[in-house]
Write a protein that binds this DNA or RNA. Structure first.
Lengths: 200, 200
DNA sequence: CGCTCGGCTGACATACTGTCAGTCACCTTC
DNA sequence: GAAGGTGACTGACAGTATGTCAGCCGAGCG
């Protein structure tokens, strides 16, 4: 019988392995099918070990949202902080958004799924969306002070069009095979453009 | 000790009581907090009795979707089957849609929640949305043959704007207090109108 | 009156979660 | 290089939900 030498690993090392395992499972299974047992079987550690590193699956997923949020802010800032009346800037921002979701679709899908499963994540996800609502509404109001976006209700429009983005991007890219990014980008861009950049 | 006379009731009678109980619970709690035990405590019957009438909570909810779909088709047919280039007809259809969701918001929210929880309902819900996509896309193509809706990609636009409707209506009216129906109707109508009824 | 039908239930099997006392590898400190 | 502490790790347990099943019992029928 060969001696199994269990090298002890650092905490962050194991954490990363668990996250990696979850992300790969998420491309294959809906969140409802993923259990702690299933995750840990891919790591060679016992199930209770999971709870040393994370409090729950939703909490693990919640961590990813924070990281992705930073990236998304980076890619959309070009429009959010602009003051020009040029839809192409909006297109660039949306294009960046599409790119992020294409790469992290399973994570976003899992966040949305876990939001219906876990009260804490529901709140975080709601807050995340609300932040975008506020940012887009603010951008619209800035434009309106410059005479752009006539007859648009900043708050409600931001709310509606952001929900569209979230729902469309998650459904289009949340699982494989993904839909065509070009077509999705074009369709949501057209909706944004016509809603904001054309008057009655 | 007074004798508890358990009058035996008809199957449909009990079914209706269970459904009623679930619907009332849904306005108070997210689906994740609702258990079979909780449902049956409100009926004076035991937990296993639930399984005589329904196979699972998601399946119960799925039944509701079928009924609501009929109503929704009725309220939107005015636009789906029209051939005129008049956005007011669209507004009427959307108004009917808003009304249905205002009244049955908790059910719709539960359907969306249960879709992430149950494979079967996920498929049903996906099919439901796909049917709307097809119907709206068909309506757009009919209009385009008459020269309306220039430069609109029928399929992708239908997909995107339907997801907006679903996400917005469920978030706005899925729990109490609900958002203002007038504002929601106006904002989604504007987005539909500008997307379809205004060219580049 | 006896029989069947079907609503109904207690009890069971199963599955997953989260916790905890205790073990063991590794690192410091002397 | 021995002693002791730190923290990763685990087996076992308790809790709670689901779905099933053998069997009870009330109601209606012949």
């Amino acid at each position: 019988m060969s001696e199994i030498s269990r090298k002890r690993r650092s905490s962050t090392e194991v954490r990363e392995q668990i996250v990696e395992q979850v992300l790969s499972l998420l491309w294959e299974h809906p969140l409802r099918d993923i259990t702690v047992k299933m995750i840990m079987e891919g790591t060679g550690l016992s199930r209770p070990s999971f709870y040393i590193h994370f409090n729950s699956i939703p909490e693990l997923i919640e961590e990813r949202l924070g990281e992705l949020e930073q990236v998304m802010i980076g890619t959309t800032m070009v429009w959010l902080s602009s003051t020009e009346d040029d839809p192409q800037i909006l297109r660039t921002a949306l294009s960046g958004l599409v790119e992020v979701v294409v790469e992290n679709g399973a994570t976003f899908r899992a966040i949305a799924e876990a939001a219906t499963l876990d009260a804490r994540l529901a709140k975080t996800w709601g807050g995340f969306l609300a932040k975008w609502d506020a940012a887009v509404a603010a951008r619209i109001r800035v434009g309106q002070e410059l005479g752009h976006f006539p007859d648009v209700d900043a708050e409600w429009t931001a709310f509606a069009i952001n929900r569209m983005d979230a729902a469309v991007l998650i459904e289009a890219f949340g699982k494989r095979p993904q839909m065509d990014p070009e077509s999705i980008l074009e369709s949501i861009f057209q909706i944004w453009k016509r809603t904001l950049y054309s008057s009655k």
